[in-house]
Write a protein that binds this DNA or RNA. Structure first.
Lengths: 248, 248
DNA sequence: CAAAACTGAGTACGCCGTACTCGCTTTATC
DNA sequence: GATAAAGCGAGTACGGCGTACTCAGTTTTG
């Protein structure tokens, strides 16, 4: 087994031959530019090649399939999860919370990222750096590495799931071409037709209470994240080396 | 606005004309059968039509786009989240936990469901029934409907995010054609190359601790779910009408 | 019975990912 | 530096996709 069947193990540049006219990084950058501007479905090998001024099939010198382009995009974007300054925050809860918020910021900035990242295992160098950072925050709590991975995985599962539903809502609104009010009205008329059967008392109450102010997307994200971190912290009675004095 | 631009408001059968040779339900069923057996990417309008013994374009009498086929599939499958007996569980935490486990069971049974559901707002009748059920569990806790929606949304965000990463791992393994051991070895050799730089102390520790037993996927799912529910419960000091006696 | 209107099959268009071929250019080796 | 090997980029082609459009036939309503 040479390991070359894996994108990240395969050397970008072979030993011999002319210098390539661009690089995997440039390919990832171009793909991200297209996806940011026109969405994931605008990405095609022909389009990327045209943007790079190369022949379509030339891209396959850098990558063995379109799927690997997606791998490159995800790992490139994941770098933005990491805060600029490397020094670890004093509190692991604060650290994970910060990471979660940075992840959300990044996924909202690149709406294609969350669906794409959810469908593939995080395997690239920046994902590894991210995991290293997260694990480092949990060092000294007396957890096994396996427990740490489970904990970090739970936080990212929530973050990913939340942001995907947040983005799906926004995307559906955009595609429908309706205003928010029109879309709510359409939704409401469907729900009304269900309520008419009398089997949906809670939804009925929902329509009656509507009109109050809604929680914003930020607040809803914070709610679940903070509850999850609360629960995790409560499940760790054993404190780190700094002693049990710190209550929160 | 007639409302007919929405799949769920549009009548399946128009007032006049010959009887259609199948139904939206049959279309959804056929699509689910194909996706279960051969994956989401095996679904095409031509393929579904062939399975139904119809012409390709005839499907557009039932649905305005392929996307609506996906809507039908999701809403049909979501019905499986709901437990068979309708009587509400005595405890809202138990109720939500059960719902989460049922959702996971369903999404593992239909591996195409989680990615698909994550990308579209839950809008069909079965999604409404699901939401009605979940909200009903939270009745009497003194929450506003908006708070209830946020709470339920957080739980489903976690469930969806977790299962997508669980499925992504399994899918990557399947596509690689490697055994689990081979894949771990490949992963390890990549991580080793990173460790060689000396900048990944936690990953280094991870490789050294490996070989111990891993937490299973069930346990990892339960961990995050239970921590989240713990945190939510702790954030609700006010108890329902049954009095504050019940501690858990 | 008449006529309105819905059905389903067929054809066609413009995309897509990618396998394959073939001169050309660059590089490593002697 | 000459030379041979090998990677490079462009072109062509194939099979598949979603779906717009047309048209003959059938079913239902009045």
């Amino acid at each position: 087994m040479t390991g070359h069947e894996n994108l990240w193990m395969r050397p970008e540049r072979p030993a011999r031959g002319p210098r390539p006219s661009f690089s995997r990084a440039a390919l990832a950058e171009a793909a991200i530019r297209v996806a940011d501007a026109e969405g994931l479905e605008a990405i095609s090998m022909r389009r990327l090649a045209a943007d790079l001024g190369a022949g379509t099939m030339s891209l396959y010198r850098y990558v063995t399939s379109k799927d690997e382009v997606f791998d490159l995009m995800v790992d490139t974007a994941v770098r933005e999860y990491l805060p600029e300054d490397r020094r670890p925050p004093d509190d692991w809860v604060e650290g994970l919370r910060l990471l979660a918020w940075q992840a959300r910021r990044t996924m909202l900035r690149h709406p294609w990222l969350a669906p794409l990242a959810a469908g593939r295992p995080q395997a690239g160098p920046n994902s590894a750096r991210l995991m290293e950072t997260a694990l480092g925050m949990l060092d000294g709590l007396g957890l096994s590495v396996d427990e740490m991975l489970t904990l970090v995985g739970a936080v990212f599962a929530y973050v990913n799931g939340y942001i995907q539903s947040e983005l799906a809502e926004a995307e559906a609104l955009r595609r429908s071409g309706l205003t928010l009010a029109q879309r709510l009205a359409q939704h409401l008329s469907f729900i009304q037709s269900l309520i008419a059967t009398g089997e949906y008392p809670m939804l009925e109450r929902m329509t009656k209470e509507a009109g109050r102010q809604y929680m914003g997307a930020d607040d809803r994200f914070a709610y679940g994240l903070d509850r999850l971190l609360d629960g995790v912290a409560a499940g760790l009675p054993r404190r780190g080396a700094e002693g049990p004095a710190r209550s929160r």
